[in-house]
Simulated scan of single mutants.
Amino acid sequence: MPLPEAKPPDGVTLFKQQCATCHTTNLSDAVRQGPSLLGIVGKSAGKADGFRYSTGFAKADFVWDEARLDAYLANPQATVPGSIMAYRQPKAETRAAIIAYLKELN
C-alpha cells in the first residue's frame, strides 16, 4: 500500500520553524532579535515601538506589503541595505505561505 502524499506545511508551521526564533506574533512576549510581526502588513518599515533597528531600517521609507515582504524574505540585504537579518528563503511557495500567515495577523 503506497503512503499518502505528504502535505506541504502551512504558514503557521513554517513561521514557527523558520521565523519564531527571532520574531514573535504578539506584543506580550519579550522582544527577540527581531521585532514582533503582529500586524506587519501595512506598517511602516523600521518603526515598531520598543525595537532598535539596524541603520538600514532606520532609513527605510516604505510600508510593508506582500511584494516587499516577498522580496525581503528572498534577500533581506538587497531589499533593505544594512539589514542584519541572515535568513533567506529561496522558495517562492514557502515565502507565500509565511506571508499569508502574516496577513492573517492584521
Rank of each mutant, 00 (worst) to 15 (best):
L3H: 07
P9C: 04
Q33A: 15
Y101A: 12
K16H: 12
R32P: 01
T24Y: 09
Q89H: 06
D49R: 14
Q33V: 14
P4C: 08
L102N: 05
R68S: 13
A48G: 07
N106I: 03
L73S: 04
G56C: 08
A60V: 07
P2C: 13
A6Y: 06
D10N: 15
L105N: 01
A58R: 15
V31I: 12
P4T: 02
E5F: 09
A67L: 08
V31G: 02
K43T: 02
A97Y: 03
Q77Y: 04
P8N: 05
F62C: 07
K43H: 09
P76A: 10
A67I: 01
P2W: 06
A20H: 06
L37P: 00
T94D: 09
A20F: 09
G34A: 05
G34P: 00
F51Q: 14
G34I: 04
T55H: 15
K43M: 14
V41Y: 12
Y72M: 10
V31R: 13
K59G: 04
H23K: 11
A71W: 02
G34Q: 04
F15M: 12
G11M: 04
G11Y: 02
D70A: 11
L14C: 01
F51P: 02
H23S: 10
A97G: 03
G34L: 07
D70R: 05
R68T: 14
A100S: 14
Y87P: 00
D29C: 05
F62G: 01
F51G: 11
A78G: 08
L27N: 13
I84V: 14
K103F: 03
T21Y: 06
Y101N: 10
A86Q: 12
T94H: 10
A45L: 07
K103Y: 03
V80W: 03
K47S: 13
M1C: 12
I84Q: 10
I40R: 09
Y101C: 03
S28A: 11
G46R: 10
V31L: 11
D29H: 02
M1F: 11
P90R: 10
N26H: 05
S83M: 08
T79K: 13
I99Q: 01
A67M: 05
